[in-house]
């Protein structure tokens, strides 16, 4: 498939798949709590409703920033996801590497934070400061883990080269070497915080600060924020499944020929990852406090990521 076509088709695909993922997550969550749960297409209903609600901008808000930030957030996360997905879809070299995807993800959450802060609500201010400290906690291990890919066996950061490297070795990257395994583990540990779900949903704790920076957003703005969150959650899981656990690589060269099959395998793997890193923790844990979360991230994931970079430099 042509790279440009793949890139354009991946926009709607990203939206649909990530919203479906959210629906599946909610359904499983409900089933684990002995409830029936909403239908799987519930997020679509929510979005349709939210887009057709009244726009309210609080008087305390600085209007422009408040309005534009959810759009930037949604655009950034969709762009990040599409870059990732179109690389899997086309099998050809596409512009953009892992660092760009990470940057877009971070930008999406920063945009939401700034927009919330512009609303002038004190809860949003608390949410902002909490999210800021959480980002310091989880972004550093995540970036180190991603960079260790460049130092490790693939020695590249472009997504399609990483995929091709996995195909050439006929092994998923996480299995191929010790350093990559610990990098993958770091990323998996960071996903709950990046997706801000319990136990790390500190910035938008419902019972403490009522969704933090999302508190004043309603109607279409909230819909955009929801899209941004759903898509960035999906991007995170897809990132791990494409870069570290590219199961189709076991098929060898055929993975590049039967792109449909390899894509669906990738999506299935990322669904599994979402189940393990988002649904399960949010069902079985209580929310941590900011200090405890910080301590956790600067102990285990940071150590793991540094280990991975050291191992990859010495070539293990």
């Amino acid at each position: 498939m042509d790279a440009a076509v793949a890139f354009i088709t991946s926009f709607p695909l990203v939206l649909v798949v990530s919203l479906l993922f959210e629906g599946i997550d909610r359904k499983i969550h409900a089933r684990m709590q002995k409830r029936i749960g909403p239908p799987i297409i519930q997020p679509f209903y929510d979005l349709i409703k939210l887009f057709n609600k009244e726009r309210i901008i609080p008087v305390t808000a600085s209007t422009r920033v408040f309005e534009i930030m959810p759009m930037i957030a949604a655009a950034a996360s969709i762009l990040g996801a599409s870059i990732l997905l179109s690389n899997t879809l086309s099998g050809l070299g596409m512009i953009g590497d892992l660092i760009l995807v990470m940057y877009l993800l971070a930008m999406s959450s920063i945009a939401l934070m700034v927009g919330g802060l512009a609303s002038g609500n004190p809860y949003a201010a608390i949410g902002f400061s909490r999210k800021m400290s959480m980002m310091i906690a989880y972004e550093i291990p995540m970036f180190i883990a991603i960079i260790s890919v460049a130092f490790g066996p693939p020695a590249v950061l472009t997504i399609d080269r990483v995929i091709k490297f996995q195909i050439s070795t006929r092994l998923p990257l996480a299995v191929s070497s010790l350093s990559m395994a610990s990098a993958a583990a770091t990323l998996l540990l960071c996903i709950p915080a990046a997706a801000s779900v319990v136990p790390f949903d500190i910035p938008e704790a419902k019972t403490e600060i009522i969704y933090g920076f999302l508190i004043e957003y309603g109607g279409p703005y909230l819909a955009l924020a929801k899209i941004a969150k759903a898509v960035s959650n999906f991007t995170l899981t897809l990132l791990v499944s494409v870069v570290f656990l590219y199961i189709p690589s076991l098929l060898g060269e055929e993975a590049l020929i039967n792109l449909g099959i390899s894509l669906s395998i990738c999506l299935a793997v990322s669904l599994l990852i979402m189940f393990a890193t988002i649904t399960v923790p949010r069902t079985i844990f209580a929310r941590l406090k900011i200090g405890q979360a910080f301590k956790f991230y600067w102990m285990l994931p940071l150590a793991l990521s540094i280990l991975s970079i050291i191992l990859s430099v010495i070539g293990l």
Partner: peptide, 12 residues
């Protein structure tokens, strides 16, 4: 929640 209802904390 099976009807899609959510208990939200903010009137917005």
């Amino acid at each position: 929640e099976r009807f899609g209802c959510l208990l939200v904390g903010s009137p917005r």
